[in-house]
């Protein structure tokens, strides 16, 4: 499997505060315009600039290569966050960044703490089985796998051309569960303002499999 190190999943610079991909808010794929504004001074104090973000990701990528943490298989940048470390007499703190990579191999979050003032790596921490955001590429891949699957297409039937696809990540807490440690996406299908109860589609991105959950005898019409 090829190495895939991508930055496209990094959220847009604040305070645009919209992420691409889901058909919500004013995302371009929903026919709207992305809500990008010039950040105010106060907003800049509490968010990363585009330059800081890019520099943080570059430093983190380098740190991972140096530490040989990039293994075979997909790895994504899934989050870049401002860290305001406290400094006496500073109202806003010392600026740092926390870059989170997600690596499929080992279901591993790799979190790199960067001192932005000195462009220096402070810490690289690896945490297996930690909940981290789904990268946009992962969502697109899951959607594409599902919508080209004959069983899913058949199950969606007349709704196929109308649905807006959304994603939830499924995690298992039990080590004996077949999906434990896998990147599994549950897809939701929205028509108008309501959601289809069926099909329930799971995409195991780690195993490259699409499956339909059998319909349960629900929604139960009798609520106690």
């Amino acid at each position: 499997m090829s190495i895939l190190l991508t930055r496209a999943a990094v959220p847009l610079p604040r305070p645009s505060l919209t992420s691409p991909g889901r058909c919500r808010n004013r995302a371009p794929q929903c026919g709207g315009q992305p809500a990008v504004r010039e950040p105010s001074a106060a907003a800049r104090a509490y968010s990363l600039t585009a330059d800081e973000r890019a520099r943080a990701v570059e430093l983190a990528d380098r740190a991972l290569r140096e530490r040989k943490l990039i293994a075979d298989g997909p790895i994504f940048v899934v989050d870049v966050d401002l860290i305001r470390d406290k400094v006496a007499r500073s109202e806003v703190g010392r600026r740092g960044a926390l870059v989170t990579h997600y690596r499929y191999r080992g279901d591993l979050a790799i979190i790199t703490h960067i001192d932005l003032a000195e462009s220096r790596i402070l810490q690289v921490e690896t945490i297996p089985h930690l909940s981290v955001p789904l990268a946009e590429e992962e969502f697109k891949r899951a959607r594409q796998m599902a919508l080209t699957d004959p069983a899913v297409r058949g199950a969606l039937g007349r709704n196929l051309d109308k649905v807006v696809v959304q994603a939830l990540v499924l995690r298992s807490a039990a080590a004996q569960d077949p999906i434990y440690g896998h990147r599994v996406v549950r897809l939701l299908f929205k028509v108008g303002r309501d959601y289809l109860s069926q099909p329930v589609v799971l995409v195991d991105l780690t195993a490259g499999k699409v499956s339909l959950q059998p319909a349960k005898p629900q929604p139960r019409e009798e609520h106690r």
């Binding site: 889901r22 955001p133 939830l168 990540v169």
Partner: peptide
């Protein structure tokens, strides 16, 4: 933490 969910306008 598992998604890229945003605030609603």
């Amino acid at each position: 933490t598992q998604f890229q969910f945003d605030l609603v306008p």
